[in-house]
C-alpha cells in the first residue's frame, strides 16, 4: 500500500496514531510505577499523600482505553478463533468483517454514552468528589477518545478484510511466520 493517494495516506495515518497511542500508554505504565513508588516513599518518611492514588487510576484507564487501539492494531485482543481458523479465506474474512461490525456497535454506544457523560461533566463542572477533587472533564475524556481511536483502527482492518473478501486472497505469510505470530498471540493471551 505504498500508493500516495489520499485514501491510503489516511489508512497509514490511522496506523501511525494507533502506534503512538501504544507508546504513550507504555510510558504511562512506567509513570504509574514511579508515582506509586514515590507515594510509598513519601508515606514511609511520614509525609502525606493525596493525589497519587487517584491519578494512577486515571493513568490506568488511559492505558486501557487509549492503548486499546495499539492492542487492536497488533492483534492483541483475545478472541475465540476456533471457527474462523476452520473456514476458507473468503468465508473467514467475511465472518471477521461481521465481527468487526458488531464490535463497532459496542464501541459506538460506549463512545456516544461516555461522550455525553464527558459533555455533562464539562458543562456542569463536575469534580471527582475526593480529597484531591480534580475536574472530571479530564478523566471522562479518556473513554470517548479511546473508543474513537479503536473505531479508526477498525476502519483500517475492515478495508483489508473487504479486499480479502473481494480477491479471496489472504496476506502472504510464511508458515513459520504464521506459527510464530500465533505463539506470540497465545503468550499475550495466556495470563
Amino acid at each position: 500500500m505504498s500508493s500516495g493517494s489520499g485514501r491510503f495516506f489516511l489508512l497509514r495515518w490511522i496506523g501511525w496514531v494507533s502506534e503512538v497511542s501504544g507508546y504513550i500508554s507504555g510510558l504511562l505504565i512506567f509513570a504509574s510505577t514511579l508515582i506509586i513508588c514515590y507515594a510509598v516513599l513519601l508515606r514511609a518518611l511520614g509525609f502525606s499523600t493525596v493525589w497519587q492514588t487517584e491519578l494512577t487510576i486515571y493513568l490506568l484507564m488511559f492505558v486501557t482505553f487509549i492503548g486499546g487501539a495499539y492492542g487492536l492494531k497488533h492483534d492483541e485482543h483475545v478472541n475465540v478463533d476456533l471457527l474462523i481458523n476452520r473456514l476458507p479465506v473468503r468465508a473467514a474474512s467475511l465472518l471477521k468483517l461481521v465481527a468487526a461490525l458488531l464490535s463497532l456497535v459496542v464501541i459506538a454506544v460506549v463512545a456516544w454514552r461516555s461522550g455525553m457523560m464527558w459533555l455533562e461533566a464539562t458543562e456542569k463542572g463536575w469534580r471527582s468528589g475526593t480529597a484531591w477533587n480534580p475536574p472530571l472533564t479530564y478523566p471522562y475524556a479518556i473513554l470517548p477518545i479511546g473508543m474513537a481511536l479503536i473505531a479508526l483502527q477498525y476502519v483500517v482492518i475492515m478495508v483489508e478484510l473487504v479486499r480479502q473478501v473481494i480477491t479471496g486472497e489472504e496476506k502472504r505469510v510464511s508458515p513459520e511466520e504464521e506459527e510464530r505470530a500465533r505463539a506470540e498471540r497465545a503468550r499475550i493471551q495466556g495470563l
Binding site: R43, F47, S48, T49, V50, T53, E54, T130, A131
Partner: peptide, 8 residues
C-alpha cells in the same frame, strides 16, 4: 491538614 495521607 492534620497530617494524614488520604485515600478516598
Amino acid at each position: 491538614r492534620a497530617g494524614y495521607s488520604i485515600t478516598s
